[in-house]
């Protein structure tokens, strides 16, 4: 079967304010399964496709990794921004 006709994995990294899927998204990265695709920081106004992880799920994205909460928690140190959810859509890419 032609590889172009096979569903391919689209990836969406969403960094939410809290581990809840209903909290606001603070970080967004879409990765298309296309050769040579690169992610990019916007030099202008960025339009946020989704407000929450739940919005993305409603739009058909499936969560494949939930935020890791087992790591040590510090009550004084700040580290990365938000809690990372990884989502996918399996689609045939024309």
């Amino acid at each position: 079967m032609d590889a172009q006709c096979q569903p391919r994995q689209r990836l969406l990294y969403l960094h939410a304010r809290t581990p809840s899927v209903f909290s606001e998204i603070l970080g967004y990265t879409l990765i298309e399964p296309v050769k040579g695709f690169e992610i990019e920081i916007s030099g202008g106004e960025f339009e946020w496709p989704y407000g929450t992880v739940h919005d993305a799920v409603v739009d058909g994205w499936q969560i494949v990794q939930f935020p890791h909460l087992q790591s040590p928690f510090s009550d004084t140190e700040l580290d990365v921004v938000g809690y990372e959810f990884i989502l996918q859509k399996m689609e045939v890419i024309p």
Binding site: H15, L26, G27, I39, I41, S42
Partner: peptide, 13 residues
């Protein structure tokens, strides 16, 4: 750890 961010809320060009 920042490699999976492309656009971040409140970023300022």
């Amino acid at each position: 750890r920042m490699a999976t961010y492309s656009n971040i809320r409140g970023q300022v060009p």
